[in-house]
Design a protein around this nucleic acid. Structure first.
Lengths: 265, 265
DNA sequence: CGCTCGGTTGAAGGAGGTCAACTCCGGTGG
DNA sequence: CCACCGGAGTTGACCTCCTTCAACCGAGCG
């Protein structure tokens, strides 16, 4: 039942700058805005987002951005790297609720819905933009279009969790893994992470997959091995390559989520 | 694997008025506003909601309010009765994503997040307020406080789905059932459905529970029977009574969601 | 009065969990 | 330079929780 507990140092405060993540002081220069995935914002909206932004923070792989049960008083946008949102039960079992990729907005569940109950951990070294939660009302009062975008983001994120729930509730182990692979591949692709060889970075280990899919580590390993041997996909050196996308779709009974034209805060 | 397919007549259009649901023409008189659960709105906000409201619709138990994959172009607030949001896979398996009780707002996932993929079905005879989706932008432009409320609702609903995902992914059958009972009891209680004897209406049958919890009907039945025999709770004549709330909490490893002070559109 | 729907029960089988090794790394420190 | 260590991945054996199949029952209803 119990997973080995991971490193839970909080890195939200006092994280040191590392060399491989240059700062992005101007939202207008944000590299994420340059890819076609996100819906464009007016100069005036970008200026507000800029004024909303409090700074950036780097979190090392395996460290926490948000600890379970604490309210950091901040929203975040994932700028670079991967992370995940999770909840743990008292027996130590962990459920990964959603994986976070560049462009994802973080903190709506806790800040609104209630006192937080989910943690956020970096999968790879990651960099986040920070936004003070107490200025959200400002945004709502003065920027209806951005308010609308934030609601869109909340609804879209629920859709992803819905999809995870369908997987965990109704699909077999092989189907769940197939879903996860397609889903993460497409999301990574949508934020321009695919390289010339057709692979995307994949900082997800088998324990993460198990925790996301409601499976044991051992069974995840065996099913993953079987699907890999069948040539559906390959995970190697922290990168994911899809071998047979159509077969994966068929196996998983996949339903497409829209990944383009979504807002970026 | 396959469930017997349910009656899928769409009742969204052309539903007939039934005698047991009197109309609520004035939002200011809305019975839901009179219970202390929802955060109060200013007269001006209520007036806007009134102008936003297009009418009401009654759906009989087992009929659909929203068919999977179609966009009705409307939002709804559940006024009376119970319903649920679900998705079906191509093999006929159904996952119930969330149960809907009076006061719940419906349609954010489809209208924003994307082309809809989940259906909404009435559990009991139910009545809904209708809001045209194309006027939502109006709301965002002119009513920041209501915009904020809608985001709050979206975030809160995601929290509920998160909780379901944790259950289905990490809890045993008995724990899942315990969670469901506590959760639905508290939600029903919070909208003033508890009667003098301490029971709440419970139009959920064992197939619904199975579909919500990712369990088979047979195993749901047996586990339910065992927990009932232990005196944890009782389901009889369409009503739910909790016998040992503390023991249920302990069994389920329950984490409380906030149910009061939430907004009502 | 038969039919359907929801609930109940028993028996058998399987998908996935648990336990326990073992390998293959990439540190890291003596 | 090599011994040691911890983390991640593999693999086999066994077990159990849950599913599947197949009845059967009782209540409501046309």
């Amino acid at each position: 039942m119990n997973r080995p507990t991971s490193n839970d140092m909080s890195a939200a405060a006092g994280a040191k700058e590392t060399a491989d993540f240059e700062e992005v002081p101007f939202c207008a220069d944000c590299p994420l805005r340059k890819i076609g995935t996100f819906s464009p914002n007016s100069a005036e909206e970008v200026a507000f987002i800029q004024s909303f932004k409090r700074g950036e923070v780097t979190v090392k792989a395996g460290d926490l951005l948000v600890r379970e049960g604490v309210n950091s008083g901040e929203f975040y946008t994932l700028l670079r790297g991967w992370a995940f949102r999770y909840r743990t039960l008292s027996n130590g079992n962990r459920q990964i609720l959603n994986f976070l990729l560049p462009g994802d907005f973080i903190g709506l569940q806790e800040k609104l819905g209630a006192h937080s109950s989910n943690g956020v951990e970096a999968l790879s070294d990651a960099r986040f933009c920070r936004f003070p939660a107490d200025r959200l009302w400002d945004l709502y009062r003065n920027h209806p279009s951005l308010s609308y975008d934030i609601t869109w983001i909340a609804a879209h994120e629920e859709l992803i969790v819905d999809e995870n729930l369908v997987s965990v509730g109704q699909r077999t182990a092989a189907q769940r893994i197939a879903m996860l692979m397609i889903h993460l591949f497409k999301r990574a692709e949508s934020v321009a992470l695919k390289d010339a060889s057709g692979s995307v970075p994949f900082p997800v280990n088998q324990q993460h997959m198990a925790d996301a899919l409601g499976l044991s580590l051992v069974h995840t390993n065996k099913t993953l091995g079987a699907l890999t041997r069948l040539g559906y996909f390959k995970v190697k050196d922290g990168r994911l390559t899809i071998g047979k996308l159509d077969s994966l779709h068929a196996l998983a009974d996949y339903f497409t989520l829209p990944l383009r034209g979504r807002p970026l805060i």
